[in-house]
Design a binder for these strands. Structure first.
Lengths: 238, 238
DNA sequence: GTATTGCTGATTGCTGACAATCCGGCAAGG
DNA sequence: CCTTGCCGGATTGTCAGCAATCAGCAATAC
C-alpha cells in the first residue's frame, strides 16, 4: 500500500493559520512597525471570529512580533537599536550552542545536506539573487542548529531568526560583502563537520560580531530606545 | 516628587492570573507530570470562563509547562532525561551570555545587591534551610542576568529557570555539595564584578556542567525519551 | 477468540454577544 | 492660555453556547 500523508498538517487549527497569515504580512513588511492592529478588522479580513484572532495575536506577542497594551491596542513591534542588539547577541549565543552540539552529532547525511545548502547559497550569490541568498543563509544556520538535536534550542532559534528577518525588513539592512560571508559560512560548515566543537562555537558566535559591535556603538551614542518608526497621530481608516 | 509605582500590576488580566495559579500548582508539584487538565474543571475551580482558561493554558504551553494535544487534551509536561538535558544546556548558554554582558555593566548598586543575595544564600545553607537556599540560588542567577540589561535574555532565562525548578520538583533532584556550590557562586560573582567578561562567561557556563554530563551519559545509555512519569489509564475523577 | 467497524459520550475548537476599560475632545473654571 | 473634569465612541476583555473531533466501548464478522 502506498504510504499516505498525514492530514494533520492540513487541518492546522484556525488560530495557528490566522497567526501564520498575520506573521507573513509582518515579515514581508506589509504591516510596518508601530502599525495598530484592530481585532475587528483582522477578524473581518480573515473571516474568523474575534476570539480566534485574539489567540493568534497572543501567539505573535510571544514571538515578539506584536505588542499588546491591555484594554487599549495591539501593534506591530518596533525594532529599535536596542532591540536589534538584543536579537543579534541572543542569536550569537544560541547559534554558538547549536554549532557546538552539532559538531558532536556529525553524520554523513547531515554533512551532505549542509554542503548542498551552501552550494545553493553560492549559486544565488553568483547570480545576484540576493533575496534568495538571504533565505538560503537562514536555511543554513537553521540546518546547523537542527543538527544539535535540541528541540528547545531549535524553537528559540526559529523565533530569533524571525526577528532578525523582521529587523532586516524594517531597517532595510542588507549584507554587504557577500564573498566574505560565503567564506565565513564555508569555514563554519567545515569546522562543524570536522567535529571541532570549540571552534565551531566560536565561528558561529563571531558570525554576527560586526553587527553587534556596530549596534552597541550606536546604542552608546544615541538613544537606543527610539523605535525605528514612530507613527504618531496616524488616523488610518484602512 | 517620589516615584510612583505603576498601577498596571494590580489590574492583571484575568487570564494571566489564571495562568499564575496553574503555574504555581505545577511548580509546587501539586499537579504532577502527565496530569490531564480539563478546561471545564479548571474553569469551575478558578471561577472564570473556559475561554479564559484556554488563554491561560496557551500561555503555559508557550512556557513549556503544559502540552496540548489538539481536540483531545491538555496535560502537564513530563520532564524526560532529554528534556532535562535540553534545559540545562540552554541554561548554560543563556547564563553565559548574561554573565558576559553583566561583566560589562558593573556598577556599585548592582554589586551590592549581588553580594547581599550571596550572603542570604550562605546564611540559608548554614542554617540547613535548603529549600530557601535554592530560591536564593535562583535569585542570584536572575540578578546576574538582569545586570546584562537584555530584556529578551531575561525573559528566556525566566522561562528556563522555571523549567529547571519544574524538573527539580519532578525528579526530586537536589544539590549535594553546598560548600562547593557556594564557592562556585562566590567565584562567579567576583569575576563578574571584576569586569572579566571571558571568565565570567566560562564560569557561568560550567556551573551546570556536572549535571549536563551526567544527563548526556544517561541519554546515551538509556532511552532519553521516557517521561519521568507515564500515568496510563488513569481514570481520575478528581 | 481476535480483529474490525460503527456508535456514543466527553472534550476541545470556535463563534457571537455582553461588560469593562480607555482614549480623545470639549467645555468650564482659574 | 492652561488645567481640570466629564462624556461619548471605540476597542479590548470575558462569558456562555454551538459545532467539530476524538477515545473508548460494544456489536459484528470471521
Amino acid at each position: 500500500m502506498a504510504k499516505l500523508a498525514s492530514l494533520k498538517a492540513q487541518t492546522r487549527l484556525l488560530d495557528r493559520r490566522a497567526a501564520d497569515q498575520i506573521r507573513t504580512h509582518i515579515l514581508d513588511g506589509i504591516l510596518p512597525a508601530g502599525q495598530r492592529l484592530l481585532e475587528t478588522k483582522l477578524s473581518a479580513d480573515l473571516e474568523v471570529s474575534r476570539g480566534t484572532v485574539r489567540s493568534a495575536l497572543a501567539q505573535l506577542a510571544n514571538e515578539g512580533l506584536v505588542k499588546q497594551v491591555a484594554f487599549t491596542r495591539w501593534e506591530v513591534s518596533g525594532a529599535s537599536v536596542s532591540d536589534a542588539w538584543e536579537i543579534y547577541t541572543l542569536r550569537g549565543a544560541l547559534e554558538g550552542l547549536g554549532a557546538r552540539l552539532a559538531a558532536g552529532n556529525i553524520d554523513e547525511a547531515a554533512g551532505k545536506a549542509l554542503r548542498a545548502i551552501a552550494e545553493d547559497l553560492g549559486k544565488a550569490v553568483r547570480r545576484g539573487r540576493y533575496q534568495e541568498a538571504i533565505g538560503f543563509d537562514f536555511d543554513l544556520h537553521t540546518a546547523i542548529v537542527e543538527m544539535a538535536r535540541h528541540q528547545r534550542l531549535a524553537d528559540q532559534h526559529r523565533y530569533i531568526l524571525q526577528q532578525v528577518r523582521f529587523h532586516m525588513v524594517q531597517s532595510g539592512f542588507l549584507p554587504e560583502d557577500y564573498d566574505a560571508l560565503m567564506a565565513e559560512h564555508t569555514r563554519l560548515i567545515e569546522t562543524v563537520l570536522a567535529g571541532d566543537a570549540d571552534n565551531a562555537e566560536k565561528l558561529a558566535r563571531s558570525h554576527n560580531d560586526a553587527e553587534v559591535k556596530l549596534l552597541a556603538k550606536r546604542l552608546k551614542e544615541g538613544d537606543g530606545a527610539t523605535p525605528a518608526a514612530s507613527p504618531k497621530r496616524v488616523r488610518a481608516r484602512a
